[in-house]
Amino acid sequence: MHGIRRVRQTQEERQASKRKELAKIEEFNALTQRILARKKGNDWSDEAFQLTTKLLQINPEFYTLWNYRRNILLKGKFPNSSPEQVHELLEDELSMTMTALKVRPKVYWIWNHRMWCLEHIPKGPASDGEPGADGWKQVVWNKELFVVEKMLDADSRNFQAWNYRRFVLASMPTPRSESSELAYTSKKIEANFSNFSAWHQRSKTLTSLWAQGKLDESKSREAEFELLRNAMYTDPNDQSVWMYHRWLVGTGGGKDVLEREISAIQELLDEQPDSKWCMESIVHYKRLLLNNYAKDVDTQHLTRDCKDLLERLETLDPMRRLRYRELAGEIGPSTS
């Protein structure tokens, strides 16, 4: 149970609510037994199908019933149906799960069933090999992308919706271009920089676009640094931005990029002297300089800077003081 407040009841209140529940328990258990008996008898009838609808409305987490329902479709209904009818049956399933999701948006098994339905949409209306053979599929997947975008409009940090969106994008018969996906993440990030999911999606999309040569990598990386600069100044306390920055620096760029980014972050730190993330990031990038370019940098100076910052971090963020202490120990003694 998540986020349900604990309430104390008197003996009387408790007994009253038990009495009220008793009828529901009996109904639920009776219905469960009726269905499980039919399932045991390999009953693929429409009547059994309707019973699963009824019970799944009460308890959409009853995974055995979703399995039974799919078996009724596969063994009872599909064999006697034309592709048009299969298409219609699955459209009905999609509306049924949509209704269920409106009540219980976080139930995994409803999403699971929905994915199964989408994947079983038959070829049509044109026959296989002809133009329009993917017509039905195209329509449902487009609709699905619309549904998931609606969910992300309602809650742009809905982790499940982002995951589901990736599933939809990967499954569409005519894939959407990755450039349009990049634009989508821009839109979400500009609306709210503090969106870990959107930054993440962006990192995956860019990696793919660079690898395929569809974007000029060095120009695109500079544009990302620019975007990050805005984000850092807007909210220097947002962890997602700093993680993305670390990823971007890590994907390439040598000593010059490190030094440029260190001084940009230093500027921000001068304005916001208590910014933990600025300090954390400067330490990380200075350590990269120390580890990768030891011959070309002033190691003593860098070591001292890192140690000073880590000491300040210990005071500023005492919960994680032992981590800072460990990092300082790894850098080695600052000989003067």
């Binding site: 998540h2 139930v107 982790f159 499940q160 982002w162 995951n163 990736r166 990192s203 995956k204 990823w247």
Partner: peptide, 23 residues
């Protein structure tokens, strides 16, 4: 594996210390 050193639930998903909405 993700850029934050974490792992996603399927290849391509962001890091998440747990997936409360799943089972």
């Amino acid at each position: 594996r993700n850029y934050d050193g974490g792992f996603g639930s399927v290849a391509g998903a962001e890091s998440h210390a747990a997936q409360g909405f799943l089972i």
